[in-house]
């Protein structure tokens, strides 16, 4: 292990936390500036991809097991669809966020609904992207052509 690895790892350690923090900022600040669930999900996944590039795939898989990601993919979509059904049960149309807070004059229902839906999108996108990276990066360790 040469010096290059040390520099790489120290840099990744320094960058990792700010990237994750930025991802959450983008996630929850999407109402006010550019951003939202899609971007935040991708940025969050990129943080872990960077970690895997520096510290190895097995290390990353110990931190976030693939089983957890499969769950996250489905759960993100479920949050989105679940918000739709919640508004349905509250008496509105599918994904009509106004019924979440009908007494408000400041569109509080819309704000809440958008936050929930974006959270679902972020979770689904982050899990899917990291899952896909795990699959591609983990393939090389499997038996190669000659071992069949």
């Amino acid at each position: 292990m040469g010096m290059g690895h040390v520099i790489l790892r120290v840099t990744i350690k320094l960058l990792f936390a700010p990237i994750v923090l930025f991802a959450f900022y983008v996630q929850f600040h999407g109402d006010y500036g550019p951003g939202g669930g899609f971007q935040a999900g991708v940025i969050l996944a990129v943080a872990f991809v960077l970690y895997a590039l520096g510290f190895g795939l097995e290390e990353t898989k110990r931190a976030i097991p693939p089983r957890f990601l499969t769950f996250g993919m489905a759960f993100g979509v479920m949050i989105y669809v679940g918000t739709g059904f919640l508004t349905l049960f509250l008496g509105g149309n599918f994904l009509d966020y106004n019924v979440l807070d009908p007494d408000s004059h400041h569109n509080a229902g819309q704000h809440l609904g958008i936050l929930m839906v974006e959270f679902g999108v972020g979770m689904a996108v982050a899990s899917t992207m990291l899952q896909i990276f795990y699959l591609f990066a983990g393939r090389e360790a499997e038996p190669s052509d000659d071992a069949w």
Binding site: G36, F38, G41, M129, I132, L135, F136, R139, D145
Partner: peptide
Amino acid sequence: LTAIVVGVATTAVGLAICVRIKEAYG
């Protein structure tokens, strides 16, 4: 915005099929 994210996901599916083709055919 949504098409970009969907695009990378579908590209990943295409690459996965390529990987399987490589493994089956060499």
